Simulated assay, not measured.
Amino acid sequence: MSSTAGATGPVSFGARLQAAVAEHGPLLAGVDPHAGLLAQWELPDSPAGLATFSRAVLDAVDGQVAAIKPQSAFYERHGSRGLAVLEELLAGARERGILTILDVKRGDIGSTIGAYAEAYLRPGAPLEADAITASPFLGAGSLDPAVDLALEHGKGVFLLALTSNPEGHGVQHAIAADGTSVALGVARHAEERGGGDGSVWGSVGLVVGATVGDAYRRLGLDAAAPSVPLLAPGFGAQGAGIAELADVFGESAGHVLVSVSRGLLAAGPSVEDLRVRAKDLQADYS
């Protein structure tokens, strides 16, 4: 799905993502080729194994999901040859019109976060993606160079807000200097910068785990950021199911990207079996 819109500038990432969800449903396919999964697929834990795995997943989810979310770490661990496979995956998805959210969780300040943004969000970059994940815990405003570049080119950024790991609670629920939770401040920043409105999603989203219980609503993130898309890991193998869409997200459930990795990838290595699993998961959450 191209970000080009002629003289009016690029179509926003939020609008493109919203259209993809409307067309395909909310399923977001995690692409996580960790060593155990490669072994399960009877593939070598090597760049060649990564390449076979990545091509099979891309073939299987084409036309089945709103977007894919490759986890960069599982490619980076193989060095430059692993990154070359990730480049191939991102380029292949772009050729097929599949949106990509690259899970890199970068977080830094000034020119450094700007350089990370150039690596992933600049059109024509070898690792170009439609959006990235980013960590705002040096201050949400520290990510503005990445957000600025994303908005300029019709790209997106997902800020970690309420993660499902137990260690996250102590930071994300903590009360900041303004008397509100850190997570709420992140949500407000996403809403302010994202450019969304009542009908179009913003291009700065939030990562909110589907296993965080009532925290998303109790801390007021739903009211503070009504236009943001929500990337929600935790579905499937991590314990969340269809009930959590309503229980955790309430009226924001329609903005949720249901991120599933192991629950989908366990159906491999058969491309046809993966396609059937993706179709079944899409039906479950649509």
Rank of each mutant, 00 (worst) to 15 (best):
S2I: 01
S3Y: 11
G6Q: 14
T8D: 14
T8R: 11
P10F: 01
S12Q: 06
F13E: 08
G14H: 06
L28Y: 05
G30H: 01
D32F: 04
A35I: 06
A39R: 15
Q40K: 11
Q40G: 05
A48G: 08
L50Y: 01
A51P: 04
A56M: 08
V57I: 15
L58W: 05
D62F: 01
I68H: 00
K69R: 10
Q71I: 12
S72A: 15
F74Q: 14
H78T: 12
G82P: 03
V85F: 07
V85P: 01
E87V: 09
G92Q: 07
I109C: 00
G110V: 13
S111R: 14
S111H: 13
I113F: 02
A115P: 01
Y116D: 12
Y116S: 08
L121C: 04
A125V: 14
D130R: 04
D130H: 13
S135Q: 08
A140S: 15
S142T: 15
A150C: 11
E152K: 10
G154A: 01
G154L: 04
G156Q: 09
V157W: 03
A161E: 01
N165C: 05
G168F: 02
H169T: 13
H173P: 02
A177L: 13
A177G: 03
A177V: 13
G179Y: 08
V182N: 02
A183N: 10
A190T: 09
E192D: 07
G195R: 06
D197S: 00
G198T: 13
S199A: 14
G202Y: 03
S203D: 12
V204F: 01
G205D: 08
V208T: 04
T211V: 08
T211P: 01
G213N: 11
A215K: 11
L219H: 10
D222K: 05
P229H: 00
P233N: 13
G236H: 03
A237L: 04
G239I: 14
A243T: 14
V248K: 00
F249A: 05
S252W: 00
V260D: 09
R262G: 09
P269F: 09
S270G: 11
D273N: 15
L274D: 09
R277V: 10
K279L: 15
L281M: 10
A283D: 14
